[in-house]
Design a protein around this nucleic acid. Structure first.
Lengths: 142, 142
DNA sequence: TATTGTTATACTCTATAACTATA
DNA sequence: TATAGTTATAGAGTATAACAATA
């Protein structure tokens, strides 16, 4: 294996650039990064508590409150007390929330395709496969 | 291309895990992440000003001062006023600084090998090549 | 006056602690 | 008493502004 920068140095540089490239795409849909992450998480399956949502996206429960306020104010999510336990808030996407999420995701995928186009064609699949593998293992390295 | 998480989501997860995995390795050598980055940058070539160093590692010039204080205090770097322009500080690694840098880098490489071992053998080279390519392009993504 | 390095200050992000309401 | 959500507070990390030394 020939000389190269440290892995973390390369992934940090790449990651910051990708996040920066996502920002204007998300802004077209009025979304911040956290708002987008919340829409993605709720899209998979509605959740019964905000704490569960925070947990699932690796955020503190206090950090997503303003995000939920914004999304609810725009009508992108529903957030209603659980009739069975009125301490909890049932969270789910509205149809409009689903539409915005899908549009934002399409925009991001288009940006990503332009990035991946810079790779040699034969490296793309292995790169994505390896990235998937390592990011899935990531919480518990080595 | 089949469904997958967003690129940025995967690189962020991976990057944080790698940085976290580096931390204890660097700590064995008494280094923080920034101190290690400074040692690497100075190892390539001595620099004439702290501003140039900060620029080269993408940090604010005010942020590296405490780092340089620490490295100088441990005798890992030399930091002397330029006789030709005493406003500037000539920065370079001491032999001990070079030794610590090399030892830390070896430790990090060993950790990275354990991480890369989780990949299919045939994906490793393409992954590293793609990561190099994209991180080199990163500052100016489309 | 302009530049290098430094210190002081402010801002952003995040986490912790304290509070309200339900149970 | 315990839990979900919220608000208030405090702590990192970082950037900006002000300052001292040198040119």
């Amino acid at each position: 294996m020939r000389d190269r920068p440290d892995l973390a140095a390369m992934t940090e540089t790449l990651s910051r650039a990708l996040v920066e490239a996502e920002r204007p795409v998300l802004a077209e849909h009025g979304l911040t990064m956290w708002a987008y992450v919340v829409l993605l998480a709720l899209g998979d399956r509605p959740l019964r508590t905000q704490a569960a949502l925070a947990e699932s996206i690796g955020a503190d429960k206090t950090r997503i409150i303003a995000v939920l306020d914004g999304l609810q104010g725009r009508g992108l999510i529903d957030r209603v007390p659980d009739p069975g336990d009125r301490r909890a808030r049932l969270l789910s996407l509205t149809p409009e929330g689903r539409r915005v999420r899908d549009a934002a995701r399409r925009g991001i995928r288009a940006m990503e395709e332009r990035v991946l186009a810079r790779l040699a064609e034969e490296d793309r699949e292995p790169f994505l496969r390896a990235l998937r593998t390592l990011s899935a293992l990531a919480p518990g390295f080595p």
